[in-house]
């Protein structure tokens, strides 16, 4: 039993080894893109929305309202980023119940990649919002003494994000596998249901924390813009 799907090489393309993490990530990407493309391909304002389109609208508007509650404003770029984080993590975790599917989020590489994406996105959004100087000044607030603590805080955020998601999903998958080998009936099902719940909660927590971090990097710039 391997703890990480990174070591499970499924096939090679032009000599590049494709492990389970990347492969199942592609599967999730394909599922999300195909579903979105099929539902929104004939989208016109004069056609009443169908049930699938309404479902997508509910999901997108729900994510958007959560971001607005956290950041206090509507930001489309933040929606693309945080919404994709939530949908990717949520779908990956929901597919845990599919036999043979290994969630990419059970790989520390994936969660690290997502955490690094957040780590990079925070300064990018901050610099875009308030400029390079304005963003770097936030590390010196409230005083220069706080500079090392602010840097440690940024690093620890990313590490905590990565470890939290990985630990929860991986542990759920491992516990389900262990229980399946010990008690083949009933308990694995209960653990899978619990895993679904945990997976949805972790997706929500991951996306909302990313939103909070990015919003905190961009929030203080808004009054300055208003006064200008």
């Amino acid at each position: 039993m391997t703890l990480s799907p990174d070591q499970n090489i499924l096939f090679e393309i032009w000599g590049i080894a494709i492990n389970a993490t990347v492969f199942f990530t592609w599967v999730v990407m394909a599922l999300l893109t195909l579903a979105a493309g099929l539902i929104t391909r004939n989208l016109r304002p004069d056609v009443p929305p169908g049930r699938w389109r309404t479902t997508l609208e509910v999901i997108v508007l729900g994510i958007q309202s959560q971001i607005e509650e956290v950041s206090g404003r509507r930001e489309d770029h933040l929606l693309y980023f945080a919404g994709t984080l939530f949908l990717f993590v949520a779908v990956s975790n929901l597919l845990l119940v599919v036999p043979g599917f290994t969630p990419p989020t059970a790989s520390l590489s994936t969660t690290t990649a997502l955490a690094l994406s957040v780590l990079i996105a925070v300064p990018l959004f901050g610099i875009t919002s308030r400029g390079l100087g304005g963003y770097l000044k936030t590390y010196l607030e409230p005083s220069v003494v706080m500079l090392p603590f602010n840097i440690i805080s940024e690093a620890s955020r990313s590490i905590s994000l990565a470890i939290r998601l990985y630990g929860n999903i991986m542990s759920g998958a491992v516990i389900a596998a262990i229980l399946l080998s010990i008690v083949p009936f009933f308990f694995p099902v209960v653990m899978d249901v619990l895993g679904l719940l945990t997976g949805m909660i972790q997706a929500y927590i991951f996306a909302i924390l990313a939103t909070v971090y990015i919003s905190s990097a961009t929030a203080s710039s808004q009054p300055k813009k208003d006064t200008q």
């Binding site: 997108v60 693309y80 919404g83 994709t84 984080l85 949908l87 990649a113 994406s117």
Partner: peptide, 21 residues
């Protein structure tokens, strides 16, 4: 894999922006 996943995630962001959001 981390690098690949970062690329995959960015591609997914673009795809969902194009086909969903």
């Amino acid at each position: 894999t981390v690098a690949a996943q970062i690329v995959n995630f960015l591609v997914l962001v673009w795809l969902l922006k194009r086909f969903l959001y």
